[in-house]
Design a protein around this nucleic acid. Structure first.
Length: 595
RNA sequence: GGGGGUGUAGCUCAAUUGGUUAGAGCGCUGGCCUGUCACGCCAGAGGUCGCGGGUUCGAGUCCCGUCACUCCCGCCA
């Protein structure tokens, strides 16, 4: 009673031969006498024909419910010309069923199993994730994800990389993301932490002489969720010895080329564009710019340095910047849309969102009366303002004026796209490397420098001397790979000199010496036993696959994702632990006061 | 921690200014139908309007609170 074919296998040439297939009932069409079933498995559909002459079969007609699992055997018949279904690869044949076994009868599913279900609330689909995944569209996503990981594994294997597993029970290192803790039964009062990434282990593998390492690494971060952030996710983790940045760019460009070939059959162009962090911020207001459209930001600090408009000149006098971009063709935006853009700007710390509309041959703006003719001319020229355009401004410190206009630029793109004035095709692949990030940034809250990426990133050689004098100006040998406004991954050349690493920890990041010793002591020691120069990168596999299949949320490409509150609605986790479990682990729950 | 959105039948949605018995499509149940393929036709069942409170002669609709899901800010070395 073994199946002989899957549901997308039989063709005209099979006519006359016996077949035995299994699958889920996709639909039943009962004509009173003759009855048709579309049987579905993960490969496709095949039509079964149940003839009323077979009285054994007629008895169970009433039990053939959609989504039931059945097995059917019979003979493959070629269909008559006018009954061929051109929409199915198996549409030229059907199986005339002799025997039919119901393996498992299905209740009526809580939501439709066709493409209609894309509109069904995610809450319900997550509670019945096994049904949602059963839909062909979602099985295709799992298949594509598999193809992507296989391409990745094949690529690294072919390039001499070793797949090495690293511990999930790691040590708590409070720098960085909040961690999930795992209590240790054998060590009362002590805890492991689940890794935010295998960063330190992979560097130790380099010291160990592995030379080329990769891993599909599960990572855990106990931070708030987003469409592109889950508390556990998968990272394509890579580390190599004896390389420089150029080697890494080439390696990853080759990897992505192969992934695109193997999953979509698409050729992407390499090498990728490279853009320094500062340019990305200045031109696009983002460290992960979407290059599928223009609307570039320009700096007008020089233009407004002496301006009568005090909001601008005052900002510049106190060291800030005035920036603007032309949202080309958006002068017809509605009051509501303008208000929304203002809210966006304000949510990023702007006091408001200054704008100038160019409509019917004249400029209209609440701030126009403050701007001199030469200032207006400069804007018109530098931003190529034409009728129907609208200029948006931001004034503030360099970083926040970039960020504000970066967001307004993205929102404007959405509005322009609705009007058909620009296009952001999900298959217009605009890759780039963002490079030369600052090694550290000043944390206002903590009043000290923190590593922009992580504290193991090596400074670019010519900036090392600035470490003591102007740490802010030191650029790191860090690189991010960006695609269509999404940060796919990032990495760096690491520090492999114990003295430099110690200096970064203690002097620049101002981590107390005893903390450095307890947390990173083993690492500093490891670097004294022959540490090779090395570097690496990590790519978010979930984001990569989401982009490949054109989904906005990584939940769509994870088999069992969690909701925004970190719950799995299917298994109803997390859940309370028993008193015995807690006792064994030497811990106690202290619930927040509810009043 | 903060801001926005959503919540009405199993599913997707509608319900005028607060006003009679809350509707439609799909699905489901029953019946008819021997070439359909999202089969068709006929009939029927199905509602804690997320939950709690308030205003009102009267609340799906207005107000307050709360829960869930979601988008974003903070956060994510």
């Amino acid at each position: 009673m073994k199946r002989t074919h899957h549901c997308n296998e039989l063709r005209k040439a099979d006519a006359g031969s016996p077949a035995n297939i299994v699958g889920w009932i996709d639909s039943v069409r009962d004509h009173g006498g003759i009855l048709f079933i579309d049987l579905r498995d993960r490969e496709g559909k095949t039509q079964l024909v149940l003839d009323p002459e077979n009285s054994e079969l007629t008895k169970i007609f009433g039990e053939l419910k959609p989504e039931s699992v059945i097995q059917a055997s019979g003979e493959v018949h070629e269909r008559d010309g006018d009954t061929v279904n051109v929409n199915l690869p198996t549409g030229e044949v059907e199986i005339h069923v002799v025997d039919l076994l119901i393996h498992n009868q299905s209740k009526t599913p809580p939501f439709p199993m066709d493409d209609e279900a894309d509109r069904v609330g995610e809450e319900l689909r997550l509670a019945y994730r096994y049904l949602d995944l059963r839909r062909p569209k979602n099985l295709e996503t799992l298949k594509l994800r598999h193809k992507a990981s296989k391409a990745i594994r094949d690529y690294f294997d072919a390039n001499g990389f070793l797949d090495v597993e690293t511990p999930m029970l790691f040590k708590s290192t409070p720098e960085g993301a909040r961690e999930f803790l795992a209590p240790s039964r054998l060590n009362p009062g002590k805890f492991y932490a689940l890794p935010q990434s295998p960063q330190q282990y992979k560097q130790m593998l380099m010291v160990a002489g592995v030379e080329r390492y990769y891993q599909m690494a599960r990572c855990f971060r106990d931070e708030d969720l987003r469409a592109d952030r889950q508390p556990e996710f998968t990272q394509v983790d890579v580390e190599m010895s004896f390389i420089d940045r150029e080697d890494m760019y080439g390696l990853i460009e080759g990897l992505l080329k192969k992934v695109w070939q193997e999953t979509l059959g698409t050729e992407i162009e390499t090498p990728f564009l490279r853009m320094p962090f500062e340019d990305a911020m200045n031109r696009f207001g983002s460290d992960k710019p979407d290059l599928r459209f223009g609307l570039e930001i320009k700096d007008f600090s020089d233009t407004f340095r002496e301006s009568d408009f005090k909001v601008f000149s005052g900002t510049i006098a106190s060291g800030g910047s005035v920036k603007a971009f032309n949202a080309k063709g958006l002068a017809d935006l509605t009051q509501g849309e303008l208000k929304h853009l203002e809210e966006t700007a304000k949510s990023l710390g702007a006091k408001g969102l200054a704008f100038i509309k160019s409509e019917n041959g004249e400029w209209k703006s609440p701030i126009l009366k403050f701007l001199s003719q030469s200032e207006q001319n400069k804007l018109r020229e530098d931003l190529s303002v034409e009728d129907g355009d609208i200029i948006f401004f931001a004034a503030g410190d360099w970083e926040s004026s970039c960020n504000i206009l970066g967001r307004v630029r993205l929102e404007s793109a959405t509005l322009l796209e609705k009007r058909g004035k620009i296009e952001r095709s999900p298959t217009d692949w605009k890759f780039l490397w963002v490079i030369e990030f600052p090694l550290m940034s000043h944390d206002e809250e903590q009043g000290r420098y923190v590593a922009t990426h992580h504290p193991f990133t090596s400074p670019v050689p010519e900036d090392i001397e600035l470490l003591d004098s102007e740490p802010k100006k030191v650029r790191g040998q860090h690189y991010d790979i960006v695609l269509n406004g999404v940060e796919l991954g990032g990495g760096s050349i690491r520090i492999h000199q114990p003295d430099l690493q110690k200096k970064v920890f203690e002097e620049i990041l101002a981590i107390p010496a005893d903390v450095v010793k307890s947390r990173f002591g083993y690492m500093l020691e490891a670097f004294t036993f022959g540490a090779p120069p090395h570097g690496g990168i990590a790519l978010g596999l979930d984001r990569l696959v989401a982009i490949l299949v054109g989904r906005d949320s990584i939940r769509d490409v994870i088999a069992f994702p969690k909701t925004q509150k970190g719950q799995d609605l299917m298994t109803d986790s997390p859940s309370v632990a028993t008193d015995k479990q807690l006792r064994d682990l030497h811990i106690r729950s202290v619930l927040p006061e509810s009043d």
